[in-house]
Design a protein around this nucleic acid. Structure first.
Length: 848
RNA sequence: GGCGGCUUGGCGGAAUUGGUAGACGCGCUCGACUCAAAAUCGAGUUCCUCUGGAGUGUGGGUUCGAGUCCCACAGCCGCUACCA
């Protein structure tokens, strides 16, 4: 029994054949402005997938979910007359390739290229209509050139607070600013920051990686290191405000807003043993209720103000905190800790002396690293005060008679001098006014968002195009003509334990000149993924990161450049925030004409394993797309992933479901094809070039064209497919298959199952590829019926159905309904109170 | 703890946005074809105490009419975590 006998239709023969043809003929190539075949009269549609990290494991079934959705949209829009930009590429820097290199000595470029080849093969085997001429990899030297160039734009810019936009620092130089002053405002700046340093691995780790590596036995400590930072905080307000006009899921917008974390309040200056100390509070109205102050353990004043008697206790507490990661500090959530410094601060509003503590529930990185504690009206302060028996003083009267202890909602000010009896909002305004008049504080808006720690101690990343003066310790940019600056060739990637990273070993490379040496840090993986959607627009441009004309065309006409961006929620915060930030900087500097990168965002739902659990190697529930393509074909995989349920839902994989859609495709095949005695597929003699005589069949075909068109626009692919199944069932039962009508079905099936639809289209004698044919319109006249069936309810319960003329007047419908014997059974002996007639739908008779 | 999402047959999911609940698919049952099986085709399939009744997580409300709107509660799943 050969394999071929078991295939319900010969997808294994025709799928690779069509893929080859699309490749050879460049069917899905998209001309750019300036190309001879570019048609400027067509509107543009830029549909983008989140490009994958080409891991050694290959494609996961989660990838084709979003990719098929965008492919359906792209293919449809193309046939609807749009210039469709639908590209693919590789987010190819990243830690796994480097780790693998450390283990095996194989250069990361080698493994990365092999992985990319595998991913490309897999994607091509699914028949996606990408313009492969626009493929980019973030590791391509030509791509690295422009990533570094964009970094230099940031390096050479500052944020002008007056106008709220980025400007070149050359303007400051012209105004006589010193290099030192300019470094204070650059968008890319050097900063000594505490990071998670792993001595055993010789690299810094992101906060979220710390636990994972500790569990594997690696050591991690907090250590201040010289790091490159990007001043994203300057864009906090714009990053919030500009979310508004974007067509993104509300949940994702909220996630971004919460991450940026704007809060309004005031800064208040206390006198701490002769030092002015500023605290930030969102509740300045509770200033009279401050009964103690807390400094973060890392606060610079701690050592200075601690009294001799408390010195030992304080020092050991500070040391204990220094060893903890942010995560661990968070874990101790429930149990507050802290120590008294022995010092006191003076409350500016009433001259009261309050004790000053240090505690790790106050973070150095947010606000000023110091707080005034109002235990009566702040949960954390309340908990702390209770534990350490500090005084708790009521200054807000709850609005609803609730207990004032730990009451944090707005109310009325009490025990607060000139604020008494004011509602919270008014009290806030009044105290800020007082603070400003007396020079003791000011209105202030704070953001949770921190500046972006942009340097990594790794080999497989973009080197910074910067050099350091050995004598003066000043940094400078290398000229653009020296880009791209690639990593030196190295044999040994092992970490040295030197916090400057593995590039420190390449002494020839580091030596720039007698005067200067190179920066040895590299950029994070985010750098490449921050702007790849720009490069796709003009991927081979040698002069610019994106040509002016291409930028204007592909970004034109909307707030955000990309019309539709599809990907997973895991990138809801960081990737999207970083890309928006870079986009805005480039916009400010005049390189882009849109203010936002992504107009519409859709998050595909997670595909779970057959057991309803997240797919993972350890659970053994991972589905490999290659297996599905081999068994059932690419069209079946595409169709199944779209048929599982709504794109945005989380849903479990079901192998039986794949068989179901495969059966559907086989049914479509057999509508037009039959096997002869030799087992060869031949066109069925049911297919005829005749007008469709079957009204019901004609109707379902046109309903299908209409519904599929509408459902694609709504991205409701599962219902589009079920409609095509209904249509196919009608064809299966038909005596004659009119070629024109069957072609219509193939035409709308084409974006979903491109191989099968093209193959059948050709086999039934149509010459042109469906992919190049205009999208069909449905014929409204095929849909109209002269009669409609209505439901008759009595008191909301279904009792009968009646058939009436489509445009029958309400009175006639009511009369017909009341004439029904079944209705009478339920109304006899009752009084009809009301009759509701919804034409085309139902009649409801209210009787009692 | 905070924020967000979800909850409809044995299973995945439909429901014109307030108007026939369960489209379509899976599974299952029966029939045709077959020596037989697979495949295929056809019929059926929410539940029950079945000429009737109940039913969209639970309890209430609005309405002629609620899966859909409002209030309260419960259960799952994500993300986040002392942000003053």
């Amino acid at each position: 029994m050969s394999d071929e006998r078991r295939k319900p239709f010969p997808f294994d023969e025709f799928e690779p054949r069509w893929q080859q043809r699309w490749d050879d003929e460049k069917t899905f190539r998209t001309p750019n402005p300036g190309d001879p075949d570019f048609d400027a009269s067509k509107p543009k549609f830029y549909v983008l997938d989140m490009f994958p990290y080409p891991s050694g494991a290959g494609l996961h079934v989660g990838h084709p979910e979003g990719y098929t959705a965008t492919d359906i949209l792209g293919r449809t829009k193309r046939r609807q007359g749009f210039n469709v930009l639908h590209p693919m590429g590789w987010d190819s820097f990243g830690l796994p390739a480097e780790q693998y290199a450390i283990k095996t000595g194989q250069h990361p470029r080698v493994t990365t290229e092999a992985n990319i080849d595998n991913f490309r093969r897999q994607l091509k085997s699914l028949g996606f209509g990408y313009d492969w001429d626009r493929e980019v990899a973030t590791t391509d030297p030509e791509y690295v050139r422009w990533t570094q160039w964009i970094f230099l734009q940031l390096y050479h810019s500052y944020f002008d607070g007056e106008t709220g936009v980025a400007k070149p620092v050359s303007e400051l130089e012209a105004n006589g600013w010193t290099p030192g002053q300019i470094d204070e405002v650059r968008l890319a700046y050097i900063h000594e920051a505490p990071v998670n340093w792993s001595p055993s691995m010789g690299t810094v780790l992101a906060n979220e990686e710390v636990e994972e590596w500790r569990a594997k036995g690696e050591t991690v400590e907090r250590r201040p290191l010289r790091q490159w930072m990007l001043r994203i905080t300057k864009y906090a307000q714009r990053l919030i405000d500009d979310l508004d006009p974007l067509d993104w899921p509300e949940g994702i917008k909220l996630l971004q807003k919460n991450w940026i974390g704007r809060s309004e309040g005031a800064e208040v200056e206390f006198d701490l043993e002769g030092h002015p100390v500023t605290v930030f509070t969102t509740r300045p109205d509770t200033l009279f209720g401050a009964t103690y102050m807390v400094l973060a353990p890392e606060h610079p004043l701690v050592a200075e103000i601690t009294t001799a008697a408390r010195k030992e206790t304080v020092e050991s507490y500070v040391k204990a905190c220094a060893g903890k990661s942010d995560m661990e500090r968070g874990d101790l959530n429930k149990d507050k800790s802290g120590v008294f410094t022995g010092a006191h601060a003076v409350n500016p509003v009433n001259g009261e002396e309050i004790p000053v503590w240090i505690a790790d529930y106050v973070m150095m990185g947010y606000g000023t690293g110091a707080i005034m504690a109002v235990p009566a009206h702040d949960e954390r302060d309340f908990e702390f005060a209770t534990k350490f028996e500090l005084p708790i003083r009521q200054v807000v009267e709850p609005a609803n008679g609730a207990d004032w202890q730990g009451y944090t909602d707005p109310g009325t000010a009490v025990n607060s001098g000139f604020l008494d009896s004011l509602p919270t909002a008014d009290a806030k305004a009044k105290i800020i006014e007082w603070l400003e008049e007396n020079g003791k504080g000011t209105r202030r808006i704070n953001y949770k968002l921190r500046d972006w720690l942009f340097s990594r101690q790794r080999y497989w990343g973009e080197p910074f195009p910067l050099i350091w003066n050995r004598e003066t310790g000043e940094h400078a940019a290398i000229p653009e003509s020296e880009l791209p600056l690639l990593q030196p060739e190295m044999e040994d990637f092992k970490p040295t334990g030197d916090p400057r990273g593995p590039l420190i070993k390449a002494s020839d490379w580091i030596h720039y000149s007698d005067e200067f040496e190179r920066e040895t840090n590299t950029m994070p993986q985010w750098a490449g993924s921050c702007w790849y959607y720009l490069r796709y627009c003009d991927p081979r441009n040698k002069e610019r990161f994106i040509g002016r004309e291409a930028e204007q065309y592909w970004g034109g006409g909307s707030t955000g450049m990309v019309d539709l961006y599809v990907g997973g929620t895991e990138h809801a915060v960081l990737h999207l925030l970083y890309a928006r930030f870079w986009h805005k900087v480039l916009f400010d500097l005049g390189h882009l004409s849109t203010g936002e990168p992504f107009q519409k965002l859709v998050n595909q739902g997670l595909i779970l394993g057959e057991d309803g659990q997240k797919m993972s190697k350890s659970r053994g529930n991972v589905v490999n797309p290659d297996d599905i393509v081999r068994e059932h074909g690419a069209d079946a995989l595409r169709l199944y992933e779209m048929f599982m349920g709504p794109l945005t839902d989380t849903k479990p994989w079901q192998m039986k479901g794949v068989e179901g859609v495969s059966r559907f495709l086989a049914r479509v095949w057999r509508v037009a094809m039959a096997q002869d005695h030799a087992g060869e597929w031949r066109m069925s003699d049911k297919v005829r070039d005749v007008p469709c005589g079957d009204k019901a069949l004609l109707k379902v075909v046109h309903e299908t064209v209409k519904k599929v068109t509408e459902d694609i626009a709504k991205m409701s692919f599962n219902t589009a497919i079920s409609q095509m199944m209904v249509c196919t069932n009608a064809f299966t039962q038909a005596e004659v298959v009119p070629r024109r009508e069957f072609t219509l079905l193939l035409s709308v099936l084409n974006p979903f199952a491109p191989h099968l639809s093209e193959e059948l289209n050709r086999r039934i004698g149509n010459e042109d590829q469906l992919a190049t044919q205009p999208w069909p319109d449905h014929d409204e006249s095929a849909l109209v019926e002269s009669e409609v069936e209505l439901v008759v309810q009595v008191n909301g319960k279904l009792r009968d159905r009646i058939t009436v003329a489509k445009d029958a007047p309400k009175e006639d419908i009511e009369a017909a309904a009341r004439a029904s014997a079944k209705v009478r059974e339920h109304t006899d002996g009752k009084t009809v109170r009301k009759v509701i007639v919804v034409p085309g739908r139902l009649v409801n008779i209210v009787a009692n």
